[in-house]
Amino acid sequence: MANVIAVLEQREGALKRVSHEALTAARGLADALGGEAHALIVGPAGIDAGDAATYGADKTFMAADDALRLYQADRYAQIAAAQVGAGDYAAVLVPATALGKDLAPRIAAKLGCPLAADVTSVTHEGGVVVTRPVFAGKANYTLRITAQRCVVSLRPNAVMPAEATRSPAVEAVAGASGDKAAVAKTLEIKQPERAAQDVAEAAVVVAGGRGLKDAESFKLIEDLADAVGGAVGASRAVVDAGWRPHAEQVGQTGKVVSPNLYFAIGISGAIQHLAGIRTAKTIVAVNKDPDAPIFKVADYGIVGDLFEIVPRLTEEIRRAKEG
């Protein structure tokens, strides 16, 4: 009877939402396989394992060590591979975050098994079957794992976390020492000056493009983002022009996003940008060119001068929220 294990991600000792998503996916796959869903938490002492049980973990393994507060790739990978190797697991689920995208291939290499990266669903039909968008969403693969075991990383926001409470069962596991030769050490996480939501994780994204004419005009975008409680995004053109940091870029060479609400302001809609927003639930476009490709994917559009439209939009949304 094969089980499933989710390797969870914590920040400052608390499990992230992506961990709940990975657990929900692990629970679903374990039920399909008729096995158990397990969780592995690597991090500092004091993390609440009950949180994992709430989202369906039959058993939680804890590698608790204050030296594991930050992501130490070698040790994290060693701990995870040892834990998976000691059990009977058909799949290892990892959130496809900055951490998971680094950790998942390491675990797969240590175990000598396939990696299906950044998937949007995982099921079981004569083997583990995943769907994964490729070419930044221009096409979707349905893939079947033919190996006994696999590592799967799960795209943030692809699975809705669902509570499925189990009684908490916790087992402590050793926190490996790390390969002596191959050591890289994470020293710190530098926080940005202004705490900003990540464009890939945000529920609302307000993105600006070349239509803003200069970097200073992004103030309009920031104000609207502030009014809707969203993250600021940017098109490739404005990132390449140096107006905005790459962390905000949406599209094939930036981030693929799936927010509830996406504002494209002064973005004409290059094919690589449209690919990156295809799974957004509602898209709003503001552009002066009625023939801009962005209007072909937008749910709602306003044609006109963004310098007149956006301040009014910010004001009306603020008023609507207060009312």
């Binding site: 098994c113 396939p114 299906a116 079957v129 968008p133 490729v134 969403g137 221009k138 096409a139 979707n140 693969y141 349905t142 893939l143 079947r144 794992i145 033919t146 190996a147 696999c150 295809r278 898209i283 009625p290 209007f295 994917v297 937008a298 749910d299 709602y300 559009g301 306003i302 044609v303 006109g304 001068d305 007149e308 439209i309």
Partner: peptide, 22 residues
């Protein structure tokens, strides 16, 4: 250890509308 079942185009977004001008 990965076999392709199929490659499919993404679901088309349903047509939206222009709310207005200006």
């Amino acid at each position: 250890g990965i076999e392709v079942v199929r490659l499919s185009p993404p679901a088309e977004r349903k047509a939206g509308r222009i709310v207005g001008e200006g």
